[in-house]
Design a binder for these strands. Structure first.
Lengths: 206, 206
DNA sequence: GCACCTAAACTAGCGGTGTAAGTTTTATGG
DNA sequence: CCATAAAACTTACACCGCTAGTTTAGGTGC
């Protein structure tokens, strides 16, 4: 099949299909040939629209980041804005967990990530934070969100109690963690967000 | 070459070579054949010692985690212990940044990670923290450390100011971040650790 | 001391990967 | 109306993780 009368592909269609495939079957399921097959096309055709496979995944990752809601920095107190942003940020990653390892890898210099950084930094500076401090706060939030979205802490423990009995005396209840996985992970995140915001609030007056 | 008079390989030698290769050239440089070549051997020979490539990388990751110093939980106040552990944990990952994306991916059920969890959880509970809270604190620290070790925040910004001028009004100074990369990243981590410990300290009395 | 079994290397090869090169046909701009 | 660019194609390369089967050295029981 030479050039068709109407284009079969577009950047948007490719990104959408890649995102769906990542969500459904994970990062490893995304190969050029497999993705092309989902689009009814041969593998190398994708290179007419993207230079490399990573460019495709970059676009998928950025699409996820672009869904984060930063509007609170326009309308709310900085405390409430940080809280809403943090929850929205984490929720966006949690909605597409399979792309998170990729997203966390490289620096996010794409439009969605930059727009988010712009809104957050601008909001914090407008609220009176010194630039250096605003940078640290933004970085810190990123650490917390990506760290929590990346690997479940609770899932790191086997469900078989026998694993711990012998060698790890304090982990005798650890096998229960996997069952409460979501509440443990979100509880830890909420704790971190609270400590962070309260601590900043207290330090601001000084 | 059939079986040699003296074994050429051992699990330890393979892990050491893999760690060196990861450190020197990154995760992508580690292929079975390449790693074997470093060891003066053909690729499939490695499968006499490890079942899969991931098993090798797991061992590398666990060796890094095993270097984290948790002794402070035996000798110090929980506040100081958390601080020392946090710094040691982050330093261990920062010393081998290329393995971090791999480490952050999967659950760490290997001996080094479990020993660390055991010491931390045991220390916090001994200090009087309720088990659920101790779990959250451990998880939170992991989020902070892996989040900060994983991707440099500062490196996410291009050094070319022109990138920002048009579209991102608040990021006009962002091109300077890459230059202060380390101080920005460690400053944000230190801020987070301080806020976390101070906040916990204040909440403990209640 | 010999037979046996396992260990640890090998070679060959399968199916899959990302991507480069070159081909063909269609759509479009000067 | 023709030249050019676009968008699909096919072919092919070098590499990937891993399996299977082979060969020989080392250690163990009779």
């Amino acid at each position: 099949m030479p050039r068709p009368r109407r284009a079969l592909l577009s950047r948007q269609r490719i990104v959408d299909a890649a995102a769906a495939l990542v969500d459904a079957e994970g990062l490893d399921a995304v190969s050029i040939r497999r993705l092309a097959a989902e689009l009814g096309v041969q593998g190398p055709s994708l290179y007419n629209h993207f230079a490399t496979k990573d460019d495709i995944l970059d676009a998928v990752a950025d699409a996820v980041v672009a869904t984060v809601d930063v509007s609170a920095f326009e309308t709310c107190d900085w405390r409430e804005a940080l809280r809403r942003w943090g929850h929205s940020y984490r929720a966006a990653l949690a909605a597409h967990p399979n792309i998170v390892p990729y997203l966390a890898r490289g620096p996010g210099r794409r439009p969605g990530a930059l727009a988010m950084a712009d809104a957050v930094y601008g909001g914090l500076v407008r609220a009176g934070w010194p630039p250096a401090r605003a940078t640290h706060i933004g970085a810190l939030m990123r650490y917390l969100v990506t760290g929590s979205a990346l690997g479940s802490f609770a899932a790191g423990f086997a469900e078989d109690p026998a694993v711990y009995a012998e060698q790890y005396p304090h982990l005798s209840q650890a096998h229960l963690l996997a069952g409460h996985r979501h509440s443990v992970d979100s509880g830890a995140f909420d704790l971190g967000l609270d400590l962070l915001i309260d601590g900043l609030d207290r330090s601001k007056g000084n």
